[in-house]
């Protein structure tokens, strides 16, 4: 019998065993459980910087403390992910009033500034955080599975090719081509404007990564058959047949019937 075994009935043994058990279980959980996809935590300075930027650029519509006015909604609870999406795609600050904010032609703020404002908004109330990079690039994702998820959840608004689609009263679901994987993830998470929320319990981070992999694979495949005509389906194809097709062939028929020189 060694020294440890001799002390097995010591009163502290139970306490130590419990402690060991907790450490092992906690460690195993931390290592093995699905991680909530969260990027680095914000610091207090970032929050302060974000608040300053917010006051200058966003408060007119969203209120001094981001609690909303009659022209801009309350941002408490939308999370840093929403800020990263809206500002990172140039939608915010909104250039002019309208039914919805279109994707901006250029992003007006640097990454650090956006992160700062995101930290400020996140400090108001808990909300979705900027996702971890491992789930936002599509790398390692299964495009086949992603496609199945896309066709069930997304193509009815955004169209099978991600070319966009109409909603009621002038609203629309925008094009998905040329969008960073991170922003797609954030849009799913935060449900911007008319878009519903697809939280991580509905579509898990791995599934979101599959989705992004699918969209990237689609973009890479391009349009093998020729001009895609906006990927809008039979309507532009019919237009080409009538205008271009009939036009050229009637032109040929006219040439055929004209007297030779």
């Amino acid at each position: 019998m060694n020294a440890l075994a001799a002390r097995r009935r010591h009163p502290a043994a139970i306490f130590l065993l419990l402690l060991l058990g907790l450490i092992l279980t906690g460690g195993a959980y931390a290592a093995l459980a699905p991680k909530p996809a969260i990027a680095a935590e914000a610091s207090a300075e970032q929050v302060k910087e974000g608040q300053e930027l917010f006051k200058t650029n966003c408060a007119t519509c969203h209120g001094a403390n981001a609690l909303g006015t009659n022209v801009g909604p309350n941002l408490a609870g939308v999370g840093a992910a929403a800020v990263d999406f809206q500002m990172g795609t140039g939608r915010m600050p909104m250039a002019e009033p309208g039914v919805q904010a279109p994707r901006g032609k250029e992003v007006q703020f640097s990454e650090e500034q956006i992160a700062a404002i995101g930290a400020f908004v996140a400090s108001l109330a808990p909300g979705p955080a900027v996702p971890a990079e491992e789930y936002t690039t599509g790398a390692g994702g299964d495009p086949g599975k992603g496609g199945e998820i896309f066709r069930t959840n997304c193509s009815m608004c955004h169209n099978s090719a991600g070319a966009g689609g109409a909603l009621t009263r002038g609203k629309y679901a925008p094009k998905l081509t040329g969008v960073e994987g991170k922003h797609i993830y954030e849009a799913l998470l935060t449900g911007p404007q008319s878009m519903p929320v697809f939280n991580d319990d509905n579509i898990s981070p791995e599934s979101k990564n599959d989705l992004i992999a699918y969209l990237k694979a689609m973009e890479e495949e391009g349009n093998p058959g020729g001009m895609a005509l906006g990927s809008l389906g039979p309507v532009p194809e019919g237009l080409v047949a009538w205008v271009f097709g009939l036009g050229v062939l009637v032109g040929a028929a006219y040439w055929l019937g004209q007297k030779g020189a």
Partner: peptide
Amino acid sequence: VQINAIWVYGPYDTSAVTAGAQ
């Protein structure tokens, strides 16, 4: 000019649909 890009639409499923269905 590409026409009827069936690979973009995906296989038919009764619970899925695409915007711009004509």
